[in-house]
Design a protein around this nucleic acid. Structure first.
Length: 920
RNA sequence: GCGGAUGUGGCGUAAUUGGUAGCCGCGCCAGACUUAGGAUCUGGUGCCGAAAGGCGUGGGGGUUCGAGUCCCUUCAUCCGCACCA
């Protein structure tokens, strides 16, 4: 008889639930620790083995921290709004809430089976009105605040209005859309519509008419992070540009704080780098170029003001507002055509044509601010309307794109920085001395930049400027299954609901489709209006709305008076350890940081950064198996013989392959097509080929945790997922190795139990050898957990159990601390052993054992002795030996003579406790 | 193109951070027990070699008594961004 994992795991899962073992509350006697997993979207497919990887790691860490005396907050909930449930609803007519509810219970069932230490009393769901009340509340606050660049924080819009009433907007420095200057008197004489229009330019949540990413297949707009290479991330549908009125969040106001904050948080360098790139800060200057025959001027942004004397022409984005003004009649037709063509092309097409140079001369000329030379003005779609000012000064000698353009249109190329060869190509490096550049000749690039900016500022035609690539986040979705906006329209002006009206509940609709007139699904809802009869907003919020502050809500999930109580937030503060995938780098992880910073400005949260330490678990890839079918037949050739035939590899279900050996009978049953399959075998076996690929149904390589738990138990699954390799690294899932971990579990059990599976732990005192094994394991496992090196911790457990097994150690003094340690990895087994050892309280609160130096120290050391760096033999010496004693012992050792060949060593290097190297 | 990461046995990996390369596990080989099994246990297993020994951390070079680890260079793979001025 062996360890009965089925019975034991079930028993403790029930007991933990019943006793609320993982319930957490504020306890000021203990230090807090907040361990969080990324919010899962409960998909219909359920969990596969890749999903729980991070949850297992964080669970081990949470359990370890509890045993170390921390009060650990470790919650779980569901990001329940999302497109798949709604797509399903559209197809079937079933309410997405029903599908979502069903998927959630399936998730919960799967999660429970793995033995996580979540405090389920804190569960939140984004689609729960009690939850989204606070998502809506936060939106209202965003609407009612603006970002003051002077104080670098969000401030009430009321304060802005007060300022307008006294001084107009002249003294205001806010993150906003361009607003024409106005005086206090002008403000006071404005009507309501005028004032609201002005204020909209300042609000952190604002309505704006701009080009958006429109996805016709999904029937909604998407944020930039939801689009990849012109296709929607979800569903991979084409995305096009469209002008629409949409809600936005002014995340750009926080660009510099989002960038700076990265310096203070412990995230992987690559993740921070992705965010830095996404934010895309660049330093430079804006410069105004006067136009010939016009009052208007073209504003450009450049990071290379030093090259201004090399600017020989100007390029505007086709969408630029000055295009129509500067185009001369003779070019009007050509320009119109080019603009129309550019507008027609999707992002996708634009990207595909990156290499081809296209553009159109407008007939207009700008004037060089220093030389006064005329510069032809072109339009071209290599200049993006959405970045900088949508216009550039082209410096062909020092910008490869401008160079290609100039060559194509035969424009002048003037070298102004030494170091390259402009005959061959542009010289883009920011290194060299200025030439052909009037007052900056001879300067280094860096000095030239500041000199030019100073001159521009002095002349009043330019300023130093920091530009960001980050755009404001589109916050409207033309979908049903999302949070309704707490917004209504009065005379077409948007207003937010009073907080007392929250939550504004998602209404019922007859269909989850847009209306015949193209309105979003909420337009179908009857009486979708305020008490006073004003129409409510038809859009809903995007997926990231509900997931942006969920970690705050976990601190105080039942509170209906506030997002979070002062008490809870002052205790739990922020997330100490966040575990999840890197795919959220430019979405959730940016939005959350922004959202948190805003709430921080409001004094709702106490930490400026939400996630102090973040671990990205690597993706678990699938390991696919292949059979090799002889083309045009139903004969399959074993792996090593496939070269002798003309074969085609076919994916085969990994569940009918064991250690790459095909279960031929199962294969025949697997698919009717193969019922009469013939096999060409090697050594009587059919060996399959294999490859590492994405885990996917279509590759027949999906492993779900339920099957493995059924076969090996949850503890084995947990240990095996950790044993696979470093948590942050992507690695293939290979079930072949799980047996080894399963054996370990049983070996561990046998330390505590006799041959007949009878409990057999002795109270005899342990000897020094046994203590050494234990204490070394305590030290190693503790250190490994602290540095999230779970794979090496599992390996240390194996070493420890192997050694104790060899010693046939069954002593309580050793096995009790071992049970505590192992319980964070294998909680069911740990809890069972702990109780059998006679304890009545849960092992989760047993203190993690302390290791002692006296037990781990060795008195004899094995010195490897090398000659000229090559290890030749080993010698055992007392740990107390001095350098001289070691040297003498080594040189007089019998093995040494052979290598010394009678010569005296040139030098002997002794590193105490480590090695000896003899140089001859 | 720019940025980040990773290259170690047949496979997943480890290496006290410059000090015995290959721990632990899988697989494989041999043996034991067996109602010859996709069970369990014991031993072996980097490569070449009969051995002595030699070679060996993607390749090349360097620093050092000593390099998987540091430096230079090069190749490969993965990821992110990409006409961002």
């Amino acid at each position: 008889m062996d360890y009965n994992y089925r019975e034991v795991e079930k028993k403790w899962q029930d007991a933990w639930r019943k006793n609320k073992t993982y319930k957490t509350g504020i306890d000021r006697q203990k230090p807090k620790f907040y361990v969080l997993d990324m919010f899962p979207y409960p998909s219909g497919a359920g969990l596969h083995v890749g999903h729980p990887l991070g949850y297992i790691a964080s669970d081990i860490y949470a359990r370890y921290k509890r045993q170390k005396g921390y009060n650990v907050l470790h919650p779980m909930g569901y990001d329940a709004y999302g497109l798949p449930a709604e797509q399903y609803a559209i197809q079937t007519g079933q309410h997405p809430a029903i599908t979502t509810e069903r998927n959630i219970s399936r998730y919960r069932e799967q999660l429970d089976k793995i033995g996580f230490s979540f405090d389920w009393d804190r569960e939140v769901r984004t689609c729960d009105p009690a939850y989204y009340k606070w998502t809506q509340w936060t939106f209202i606050q965003l609407f009612k605040h603006f970002y003051n660049n002077k104080t670098r924080k969000a401030e009430p819009i009321q304060a802005l209005i007060a300022e307008f009433e006294v001084n107009g907007n002249a003294g205001v420095d806010a993150a906003c859309d361009p607003v024409a200057p106005f005086s206090a008197i002008q403000w006071k004489t404005m009507d309501e519509a005028g004032r609201q229009q002005i204020l909209m330019n300042y609000r952190l949540a604002y309505l704006s008419d701009t080009m958006v990413n429109w996805c016709p297949a999904l029937g909604t707009v998407l944020a930039n992070d939801e689009v990849k290479e012109g296709f929607s991330v979800r569903g991979n549908h084409p995305v096009e540009r469209k002008k629409m009125k949409q809600w936005f969040l002014r995340i750009t106001a926080y660009a510099d704080r989002l960038l700076e904050g990265l310096e203070r948080i412990e995230w992987s360098e690559s993740l921070k780098e992705i965010q830095r790139n996404w934010i895309g800060r660049s330093e430079g200057a804006t410069v105004f170029f006067g136009l010939k025959g016009h009052d208007a001027s073209i504003e450009v942004f450049t990071t290379r003001p030093d090259t201004i004397f090399g600017a020989t022409f100007m390029v505007l984005a086709p969408e630029h507002e000055l295009v129509s003004q500067i185009t001369t009649p003779e070019y009007a037709t050509a320009v119109e055509e080019y603009v129309a063509q550019a507008a027609r092309r999707s992002d996708r097409e634009r990207m595909a044509e990156v290499k081809t140079v296209s553009g159109q001369f407008t007939g207009g000329y700008a004037m060089h601010p220093f030389s006064g030379k005329p510069m032809p003005v072109f339009i071209a779609d290599y200049v993006l309307a959405g970045y900088g000012t949508g216009a550039i000064m082209a410096v062909p000698a020092h910008d490869s794109r401008d160079y290609a353009f100039a060559r194509h249109f035969g424009l002048e190329i003037v070298e102004v920085v030494t170091g390259g060869n402009i005959e061959e190509g542009s010289y883009d490096a920011k290194q060299g001395r200025m030439i052909n550049s009037d007052f900056i000749n001879g300067l280094e690039v860096k000095e030239a930049i500041s000199t030019v900016i100073a001159r521009l500022e002095q002349m009043g035609i330019g300023t130093r400027r920091i530009n960001f690539r980050l755009r404001d986040a589109i916050f409207s979705r033309q979908r049903y299954w999302g949070e309704p906006f707490p917004v209504y329209y009065k005379d077409s002006i948007p207003y937010v609901l009073d907080e007392s009206e929250l939550p504004l509940q998602l209404p019922e609709v007859d269909k989850y489709l847009p209306t015949e007139t193209g309105e979003p699904p909420l337009a179908r809802a009857i009486h979708w209006q305020t008490k006073e009869g004003y129409p409510l907003e038809h859009n809903t919020m995007p997926g990231f709305a509900g997931s942006s502050a969920y970690y705050i809500r976990y601190m105080d999930p039942g509170n209906d008076q506030a997002l979070v109580s002062k008490e809870a937030v002052s205790y739990w503060q922020n997330v100490d350890l966040y575990v999840g995938g890197a795919e959220h780098a430019t979405g959730h992880l940016i939005y959350s940081r922004f959202w948190n910073k805003f709430l921080f400005d409001l004094g709702i949260v106490v930490k400026d950064e939400p996630f102090q330490k973040l671990i990205n678990q690597g993706m678990i890839q699938g390991r696919s198996n292949f059979v090799y079918r002889v083309k045009g037949s139903n004969t399959f050739v074993s792996f090593n013989l496939r070269k002798d035939y003309d074969v085609m590899p076919i994916h085969v279900d990994v569940n009918i392959v064991h250690h790459d050996l095909l279960d031929m009978e199962a294969f025949r049953q697997w698919n009717p097509e193969y019922r009469d399959a013939k096999f060409v075998l090697e050594d009587g076996k059919y060996i399959c080929g294999w490859e590492v690929e994405k885990m996917s149904k279509s590759f027949h390589n999906v492993q779900n945790p339920d099957d493995l738990i059924e076969r090996y138990g949850a503890d084995t699954l947990r240990l095996y997922e950790m044993f696979l390799g470093p948590i942050e690294q992507a690695k293939p899932w290979d079930t072949n190795g799980i047996e080894g971990v399963f054996r370990f579990i049983r070996k561990l059990w046998r330390l505590y139990n006799g041959k007949e599976n009878e409990w057999s732990v002795s109270d005899e005192p342990a000897n020094d050898k046994e203590k050494k094994v234990l204490h070394k394991a305590i030290r190693k496992v503790g250190e490994d957990i602290e540095k999230f090196s779970f794979n090496t911790a599992v390996s240390s457990f194996m070493i420890c159990v192997n050694e104790l097994g060899d010693m046939a150690c069954n002593k309580r003094e050793i096995l009790e601390p071992l049970a505590i340690m192992v319980s964070s990895f294998a909680p069911h087994l740990g809890e069972e052993l702990w109780h059998r050892l006679g304890h009545t309280e849960s092992v989760t609160i047993a203190p993690f054992p302390q290791w002692e130096e006296q037990y781990v120290a060795d008195d004899l050391l094995t010195y490897p002795v090398s000659f000229n760096g090559k290890t030749r033999f080993k010698i055992e010496l007392s740990a107390q030996s001095t350098r001289e004693e070691v040297e003498a012992a080594v040189l007089s050792a019998p093995e040494a003579a052979k290598w010394l060949e009678g010569k005296a060593p040139k030098r002997v290097i002794v590193v105490p406790g480590k090695i000896v190297n003899v140089v001859i």
